[in-house]
Amino acid sequence: MKLLKRPLEAWGMFLIFALIVVIGTASFFIKWMPPLASNRISIDQMMNVLFIITGIFFVLVQGLTGYFIWKYSDQNKERSTYIPGSYALEVTWTLGTAIILAVLGIWGVKVWKKTVIQAPPPNALQVEVVAQQFSWSFLYPGPDGVFGKLNPKYISFLNPLGIDPKDSAGKQDVWTKDDLYLPVGKPVVLRIRSLDVVHSFFVPAFRVKQDAVPGMTISTWFIPEKKGKYEIACSQFCGRGHYTMRGTCFVVSNVRFQKELAHLRKEDEGE
């Protein structure tokens, strides 16, 4: 009969809140993110710290709410206590939250500067990434290290990127479709652009995502650190075939990378 001091609803809510806390928290111990394959470890560290901080709040707030619902549903109690507020409590939790968020904010600024704003090392490999409905093209400069101009007016079946035939710098540029080759351990700058609509270059394993916006060339850089094959996704809805716009990134040894480029140049001359 003691149980019935509280209505069934109180037990129901208590149970659901308990399940939210237990299952919600436990499920974040599974490693959902794909293993990191680039130098952007600071993003992973940030995620881990955020899991811990938000996790503590999650358990505390959901847990206490569930417990309060159960505890204060006691119908034997005569009346609620009249408590319109508490200056001390309110100031404490306002300041507490503000301090935690300020620390997070400063840290976020630091990591953002390091991953996005900081200039790439000067020896970085430059690759031009051109998105269009629904494929990726990757353009590598010739041995001169300089890209030829791209101009959409030269786009044709054989020249889908519109490499300017009059620009001598472009003569030895080579391009691949949907396959991106990168040498392991070498910084790479992706110069991302789009021919038609907004796309987004996303490789989950690299923690790299950057929109491709027509009319703009947007650079992002990172260092691929593990050899292997990684899927490139388009993460911005770009039309009917959005779900088909997948590329593949091959992170290979430098020797193999040079071989691939040489092979591509040969193919180019063969034409």
Partner: peptide, 27 residues
């Protein structure tokens, strides 16, 4: 509502942090 608001709000902190948002944006 309070429960949903808390779950949604805490996940929002991930998205507010620009570097973490790189991974989570549009997912």
């Amino acid at each position: 509502f309070v429960s949903l608001f808390v779950t949604g709000g805490l996940s929002g902190i991930f998205l507010a942090m620009a570097p973490a948002d790189i991974q989570l944006h549009d997912t």
